[in-house]
Design a protein around this nucleic acid. Structure first.
Length: 270
DNA sequence: ATGGTAGGTAGCCTA
């Protein structure tokens, strides 16, 4: 089974490009982030015509996640249990940043971690709170094949940005953010892509970052040991950053060898 | 060069 994650930066702005990529890449399950539309606005028909069922979760023009699969999805869950909310003013609102589904006995989450904006911004504290909840949940999800897939908006290592000196005082590389990412690993997850596929996953539209090769590695697939045991291969499709109207992120792909025997008697934990 | 671009939306917000 081939699974992938991709911050598509508006599913409606590049529907054909995404569906074409899915078919061409022989992907079974795609976790999308930043669909930038309401659940009911998702372009379901184009995906269904290509043989993919879609479960989407979007409240408005911001954020939004979805999972497209050509294998049956079960136990679809929207939002993290206990997911913190955010609002610039007024009461916090739980944003559409997480959804889970089970495919072929593998629990998958599509996650869009808050950006953080600036170190002094309330959004930054929100980001850290969000990651704390995710780490606490991760501890309860252990013992099953599970992958957290998405845009984590954190560059864990200095080499994950084009020039660490350019990030002095910036989000995505600050020690608290990196500690929050490490907490996910400490909770039992493994980055199943890093040792198999080097390179960046995101290049800002601004300042010609793509043309200058100035990217960031902020999209990840983090798996439990049970998931990691199934991984045969991983890759980053960096050429998806080129061409006509690309997303600023590219797909991250993981191949799972499901011939490896799974313990079907083990109960799934949500 | 002290900055850019892109999407959703209809005035700006977000990244």
């Amino acid at each position: 089974m081939r699974i992938a994650t991709w911050n598509v930066n508006s599913v409606r702005a590049r529907t054909a490009r995404i569906v074409d990529w899915l078919e061409r890449s022989d992907v079974d399950v795609l976790a999308m982030q930043e669909i930038k539309c309401k659940t009911e606005q998702f372009p379901y028909e184009a995906f269904e015509a290509a043989g993919y069922e879609v479960q989407a979760h979007g409240h408005n023009q911001w954020n939004g996640v979805a999972i497209a699969s050509r294998l049956p999805m079960t136990d679809v869950v929207r939002d993290l249990p206990g997911q913190p909310g955010y609002a610039n003013t007024g009461d916090p609102v739980v944003e559409a940043r997480a959804m889970g589904a089970t495919v072929e006995g593998v629990r998958l989450w599509s996650l869009y971690v808050p950006n953080g904006r600036e170190l002094e911004h309330a959004h930054y504290g929100y980001k850290l709170d969000w990651l704390r909840v995710l780490a606490d949940l991760t501890a309860t999800w252990r013992g099953q094949p599970l992958a957290l897939m998405g845009d984590f908006n954190i560059a864990p290592l200095d080499e994950d940005v084009w020039d660490i000196a350019a990030f002095d005082g910036a989000t995505h590389v600050s020690p608290p953010e990196r500690a929050a990412f490490q907490a996910l690993l400490d909770a039992g997850l493994v980055d199943v892509v890093r040792d198999r596929a080097p390179g960046f996953t995101y290049w800002d539209y601004k300042a010609g970052r793509w043309n200058k090769g100035e990217g960031m590695r902020i999209d990840f697939v983090l798996g439990t040991p049970e998931l990691a045991d199934l991984v045969a291969k991983a890759s980053i499709d960096r050429m998806e950053r080129s061409g006509d109207a690309p997303s600023d992120h590219v797909p991250v792909i993981v191949d799972l060898d499901l011939d490896t025997e799974l313990d079907d008697d083990r109960p799934m934990i949500f």
